Amino acid sequence: MLWIAVGLAVLSAVGLACGTHLQSLAVVSKSEGRLSLREFSRVLRSPRWMAGLALLGAGTVCNVLALSLAPVTVVQPIGVLGLVITTILHSRHVRIPINTHTWLAIALCIGGGTLFVLAAVRYTNPALAITERATDVVTYLLAAVVAVVSIGLLVLKDHQLSLFYLFAAGTLYGFVAVEVKVVTVQLHAGAGSWWQNVDLINVLGLLVAAVLGGWLVQSAYASGPPELVMAGLTVVDPMVGVLVGLTVLGEAATDFGWVAGITLAACGAVSITGVRLLSRYHPEVLTALAASRAPRTGELGIVPGSRRPVPQQPSED
């Protein structure tokens, strides 16, 4: 069973990576740096985007099956292979070699994320019962996150949005996992019909976080390389879920202390440093930055805020 789970986890990583790559290509081909609702309606009709959605769905199913056959300590670290696969696929597509800084950033993301998951499993004790007060706190926190994200979308400039999309989407998907946990516990609590046990506010929170997070992921595709999206979802998402579980849902093990806290904080810092490096030194980001600083005359450039190369007008000398 263990090796079947490992195989399913590998298939999940491949499916998620390929799905992310295809959806990113579809979004970039239909948008100009900042995705609008009209552009997204065109994206939804793209066969490439739909194929990516199918691969993401298949990858998710494989991951769920793998988790049902093996411990999270076996399955979860394998998922970070998706970041490597996405990087290679995108590099070959845009024909830009992967630089040393990018490999270092990926190594930090994978290493920090894997150690964070392993440490979290070691120091957490999944809650079998969640108090009403805890579910209320989750709702308040999610409402605050949605408010901050909404304000950020209104006030931030285009050049500031790439990392914002990444961290905001990862945070919201972390809350999706938390709400799924809460609703699952509610379904198994008490007697009577399921609708009598489940708090509809948590269901609504789950839907809002999933929809807004999904929109931010699509917007992130339009504003940066898909590796950044994959890094955000494999780093930020689990960290948010674990932190809320520890501090709100009461999942901290009895031996959780300052050593555990420092360990998780260090692993998180390593992963976030990797994401930051990836956002600054990815070859496509550097190419776009150089093109934005270059004179308007030349052979080929990239419009600031866009990931697509466009020909420059020749000078009339």
Results as ranks from 00 to 15, higher is better:
A269I: 13
V27T: 04
A291I: 02
P47C: 00
S91C: 09
T131H: 12
V155D: 05
L89N: 03
T60K: 10
L115Y: 14
R45K: 09
G214I: 06
H93S: 14
V303D: 00
L246Y: 01
D317T: 04
P97R: 06
G301Q: 04
L141G: 12
F167G: 11
N202F: 05
L83T: 12
V155H: 11
V285E: 09
V28E: 09
A231V: 13
V14H: 06
P126L: 08
I130C: 05
V176P: 03
V242M: 11
I272H: 02
L161I: 13
V275K: 02
I106E: 01
V176T: 10
R45A: 05
S91I: 10
A260Y: 06
A66Y: 00
V240R: 03
A288Y: 04
P295A: 01
R34I: 01
P126R: 13
A266W: 07
A290R: 13
G274L: 02
L128V: 15
R95Y: 02
S91T: 03
A266D: 05
A169E: 06
A13G: 06
A105T: 00
E299P: 00
L44S: 10
W103I: 09
L44N: 03
V74T: 04
V72T: 05
E299R: 12
S279C: 06
W49E: 05
A231R: 08
V244I: 13
